[in-house]
Simulated assay, not measured.
Amino acid sequence: MRFFLPDSQDLVDPTFDFERERRSMTRQRQRDDLYAHEVFAIPAFDGFLVSKGIVDGFGVLGSRYTLAQPIISMGFIMDTISERLHDTHIPTVIQYEQYEADLLPLKDICRWTAGCWDFGGGQQRKWNELQNTSKDIELLANHLIAQYKSRVWNRTSAAKTVKTGRAALSRRAK
C-alpha cells in the first residue's frame, strides 16, 4: 500500500522540456502547473493522506506538531489500517468511516497537544518533548502500531476466530 502525502508545493510543470531543460515562456505556475498525481495516467500510489485537522480545522492553536512526528507516524498507522482492511474486506476504495472506526480506539492514548505519551516500561515523554528526529518518529510510530494491533487488529482477528469456531460447532451439531 503506497500513499501520497501532498504538500502545498508539490506542483509540476507538465510542459517542462527535459531535453533542453527549459520551461515554457508563457507558463504561469498558478494556472498551468499540476499536482503530481494529475500527471500520471495510472496512479503511482494507492491513496492520499490528508489530515482531518486540515479538513476540519485544528482544535488547539499553536500546536507544536507542524513537523514530521505525527504525520509520518500516522502515515504508518494508515498503511497498517489499509493492510488490515484490504485483508478482510478487499474493497477497491476504503471509506473514511472505516479508517475513523479503526482510529477511534487510539484516541485515548494519543497526546498530540497535552499530557504525556506512555510508551510502556516506565518510559514516558511529555507531548512537547518529542522531536523531529528519526529516533522519536520511530518510537512514536512503533508505539501507535503496537497499540493499534492490540486494540483493533488482534481484537478483530480474535472475534473472527470465535465466530468461525461457533459456525463450525453449529455445523457439527446439525
Rank of each mutant, 00 (worst) to 15 (best):
R27W: 07
Q28W: 08
R29H: 10
Q30R: 15
Q30G: 12
R31P: 04
R31S: 07
D33G: 09
L34M: 10
L34P: 00
L34C: 12
L34S: 03
Y35T: 09
Y35F: 15
H37K: 05
E38K: 05
V39S: 04
F40T: 04
A41P: 01
P43V: 00
P43F: 00
A44W: 00
F45A: 09
D46W: 02
F48T: 00
L49F: 06
L49P: 02
V50M: 12
G53P: 00
G53T: 05
G53K: 06
D56W: 03
G57F: 04
F58K: 13
V60L: 07
L61A: 12
L61R: 12
S63K: 08
S63Q: 06
R64A: 00
Y65D: 15
A68T: 03
Q69T: 15
P70Q: 12
S73G: 02
S73A: 15
M74E: 15
M74T: 07
G75A: 02
G75E: 04
F76G: 03
I77Q: 03
M78S: 15
M78P: 09
M78N: 08
D79C: 10
I81H: 08
I81R: 04
S82D: 11
R84D: 14
L85C: 06
T88S: 15
H89C: 07
P91S: 06
T92K: 12
T92G: 14
V93P: 01
V93W: 10
I94M: 09
I94N: 00
I94E: 02
Q95E: 15
Y96P: 04
E97Y: 10
E97S: 14
Y99G: 01
Y99P: 04
D102A: 15
D102N: 14
L103M: 14
L104T: 15
P105D: 06
P105K: 02
P105R: 02
L106H: 01
K107D: 11
I109V: 13
C110I: 14
C110N: 03
T113C: 14
T113W: 13
A114G: 02
W117C: 01
F119E: 03
G120T: 01
G120W: 02
G121Y: 10
G122R: 05
Q124K: 13
K126E: 09
W127G: 03
N128F: 10
E129R: 08
L130S: 06
Q131C: 08
N132E: 08
T133N: 11
S134H: 10
K135A: 13
K135L: 07
K135G: 11
D136I: 05
I137T: 09
E138Q: 09
L140D: 03
A141F: 02
A141Y: 07
A141N: 00
N142A: 12
N142V: 03
H143W: 11
H143A: 10
L144D: 02
L144I: 02
I145H: 07
A146M: 02
Y148I: 08
K149S: 04
V152A: 06
V152G: 04
W153T: 12
R155K: 13
R155L: 07
R155E: 14
T156R: 11
S157Q: 08
K160W: 01
K160A: 10
K160H: 03
T161Q: 07
V162F: 13
K163A: 07
T164F: 01
R166M: 10
A168S: 09
A168M: 05
S170L: 04
S170C: 02
